[in-house]
Amino acid sequence: MAQSLAKEFTKGLWAEMPPFRLVLGLCPVLAVTKSVENGIGMGVATTFVLVFSNLLVSLLRNIIPAKVRIACFIVIIATFVTIVELMMQAYAYQLFLKLGIFIPLIVVNCIVLGRSEAFASKNGPIVSVADGLGIGIGFTMSLASLGAVREFLGNGTLTIWEGLPVFSMGPDFIPFRFMLEAPGAFVGLGLMLFLMNLIPQK
């Protein structure tokens, strides 16, 4: 039991790490990774939704009729997304302003619906939570690492919380602004995927 739990949890951290291994849910990955802070914020919000929607879908998996299951999953996910949205407005307003429309859009993030359909609807609640947590943390790490690359090259800083850089290259650093613009997101993610592909998979 404990072994399979650990397995479901860790697969999200590497073997099925979205979006590098599982190329899904790219919109927020490209859009919000202008800084590490935004990446972590988005990742945590997505993880919250993943864990709770996985839990609920798994608990209700025997009650939900097969034909309307997608509709039910969507209602469950949308509910948690709205809770996250309200909570962020109440307690992390600046972050909410930065992430903007991408918070409500977690609802159409393929990763979340994908986990409900492919995993939680077939497995028990505890494993499903482990799965959601693992995938969510993997997603957060990807967002944070892409955010770190883009923020470092594009602005010469690394910011973790409330807009305060924990690391700065100082005023002599000439930032590579391209990385903060839209094309930089595509190229940055493309090259990171390339680096991931260089590491052989077992």
Binding site: P183, F186, V187, G190, L191, F194, N197
Partner: peptide
């Protein structure tokens, strides 16, 4: 090159198209 194939080169290509749209 193999590691760059598919999505990876796709994203870089998209970046160049995005550059023209800028």
């Amino acid at each position: 090159p193999k590691p760059l194939q598919d999505t990876s080169i796709g994203l870089v290509t998209a970046g160049i198209i995005a550059l023209t749209f800028m």
